[in-house]
Computed example of a mutant assay.
Amino acid sequence: MNAIIKQALAVFSLCTAAVSVQAVTIMDGYNGAGLSYNGDVLGNPDVYQITHMEVTFDSSNLYVSIFTNFFEGADSLGYKYGDLFISTNGWHPNGTASNRYGTDDVSNGEHWEYALDTSTSDLYKLSAVDYLDQLVLSGPGTNLRHNQEVSVNTSKSTKVAAETSSADLSGVSHTVGTLGVISYTLALADIGITNLSVPTALGFRWSATCANDVIEGGLSVPEPGVMALLMLGLISLGLSRR
């Protein structure tokens, strides 16, 4: 019996470790609809470029890191950090990867279930009712990519009660042309994920309030490889008991 318990603990430890180190990198393959642009970035890439986001998770939290040149004060136009949008039913942009989702905007793309306010670290639940009223959109200035979600309208949205999610700006860039990182921690329970044995399809979106560059992407938590490892561990444990 002691041997079986030890084997069970070893399998559990291996699976837990695998879950804790899972990381997904989402490269910026999204343009979105709006004004014409030169490649991916509208304007100066040294100021507005987003290169990628990294998503990791453990048994309690998701950790989302946005890698971008942008910082408040990088230009003279007063643009701010945008908010992190989260979908808990998958990622469904309009268009295709081959055209970098160049037809996607707030009218036809993903409807996000949550938004984490970068400036206050407050998490908001977005309702399907009056969805547009709960968003702040880019535009209508002539130098902006129009009709892209950039932040949450906190006066029209519902803050998640007792939420513990947060935003961290300690790693942002302070030099034009230098890559920095904006870090978010999302408590799984805050966004309704309570059972990691069942994969959940997620989507994420971020931009500055100008939307000169936007990143979106999706993933599954846990990733299929983790689920396979969990199943392998259970099978191995069953065989050892026999």
Rank of each mutant, 00 (worst) to 15 (best):
A201H: 12
L230N: 06
E110H: 10
S59V: 12
S220Q: 08
N147V: 14
E110D: 05
S236Y: 13
L237V: 05
I5A: 14
F70N: 07
I215K: 02
V47H: 01
I5N: 15
F12N: 15
L234C: 02
Y114L: 00
L132R: 14
V226A: 03
L123W: 02
L62N: 07
T209H: 06
G90D: 12
D28I: 13
P93T: 02
V150T: 12
R241K: 09
G34V: 11
S183N: 14
V19P: 11
T154R: 08
Q148I: 11
P140Y: 07
D213V: 05
S60W: 05
N99V: 14
A211E: 11
L9I: 08
T158D: 01
L179F: 04
H92Y: 12
P140T: 09
R205E: 10
D130T: 06
D46F: 09
F67W: 13
V41N: 06
N2F: 04
L116E: 03
G34M: 01
A18W: 06
T185Q: 09
T51L: 05
Y184F: 09
G90V: 05
N31W: 13
E113L: 10
M27K: 15
D105Y: 12
G192A: 01
V55E: 03
C15Q: 11
M1C: 14
W206E: 00
I235D: 09
E216L: 05
G180I: 08
T96N: 10
V226P: 01
W112A: 05
G217A: 02
S121H: 01
D46A: 06
D133I: 02
I26E: 00
A162G: 03
T25E: 09
A3V: 15
G139M: 09
C15P: 04
L232C: 07
V24H: 12
Y30L: 04
G78P: 14
I215H: 02
Y131H: 02
A208W: 05
Y101W: 14
A10W: 05
G171Q: 13
H111S: 11
R241Y: 14
V172E: 03
Y79F: 08
L229M: 11
G32I: 02
N99I: 10
V55W: 07
D190H: 04
T142S: 15
H92W: 12
L9M: 14
L232E: 01
Y30G: 03
R242L: 09
K6M: 04
T209D: 00
A115M: 01
T178V: 15
F67R: 11
A187L: 03
D130C: 06
G218H: 06
V221M: 00
L42Q: 08
V136Y: 14
A187C: 03
T142H: 14
D213S: 11
G233I: 00
S236K: 13
G225P: 00
Q148K: 09
R242Y: 10
G141W: 15
S173D: 02
V181C: 06
V152I: 14
H92P: 13
G238S: 15
S165A: 07
Q49V: 08
S157K: 06
I193W: 03
V198Q: 11
Y114T: 03
G233S: 04
N99Q: 10
K125H: 12
P224F: 04
F204C: 04
E149C: 12
L196W: 04
L186N: 02
G34P: 01
I215Y: 00
F70T: 05
T158L: 13
S138G: 03
